[in-house]
C-alpha cells in the first residue's frame, strides 16, 4: 500500500479525506489496541486531517493519541 501523502488527501473531498485516512489509521490502531480499534479510530478521525497525516508517519504521536483517546473513551463509558 502506498503511503498516504498530504497532496493525495488534499485532492480528495472532505468526506473522502477522513475515509482515506481511516483506512490507513485503523490497522495501526489495531496493533496498539485491537479490542477497541474501531472506536478509537473513529475518535481519532475527528482530529484535523493534517494532524492525522502527521500521526500516520509518527508512531510515537499515534501511540500518544491512542492512549489519550482511550482515556477519554473510558471516562465517557464510566459516565454512561
Amino acid at each position: 500500500q502506498e503511503p498516504l501523502t498530504a497532496s493525495m488527501v488534499a485532492a480528495a473531498l472532505p468526506h473522502e479525506q477522513k475515509q482515506m485516512i481511516g483506512e490507513r489509521l485503523y490497522p495501526l490502531v489495531y496493533e496498539i489496541h485491537s479490542q477497541l480499534a474501531n472506536k478509537i479510530t473513529g475518535m481519532l478521525l475527528e482530529i484535523d486531517s493534517s494532524e492525522l497525516l502527521l500521526m500516520l508517519e509518527s508512531p510515537e504521536s499515534l501511540h500518544a493519541k491512542v492512549e489519550e483517546a482511550l482515556a477519554v473513551l473510558q471516562a465517557h463509558q464510566a459516565m454512561e
Binding site: L13, P14, H15, K18, Q19, G22, E23, L25, Y26, P27, N38, K39, T41, G42, M43, L45, E46, L73, H76, Q77, E80
Partner: peptide
C-alpha cells in the same frame, strides 16, 4: 431505558463508510 448503547464515538470499520462522515458532509 433498556437497550441503550454508546453511540459515541462513531466507530470506523475498514471498507465501510465512516458514520462520523455524516457530520462532515451532510
Amino acid at each position: 431505558s433498556n437497550g441503550s448503547s454508546i453511540s459515541w464515538p462513531p466507530e470506523f470499520h475498514p471498507g465501510v463508510p465512516w458514520k462520523g462522515l455524516q457530520n462532515i458532509d451532510p
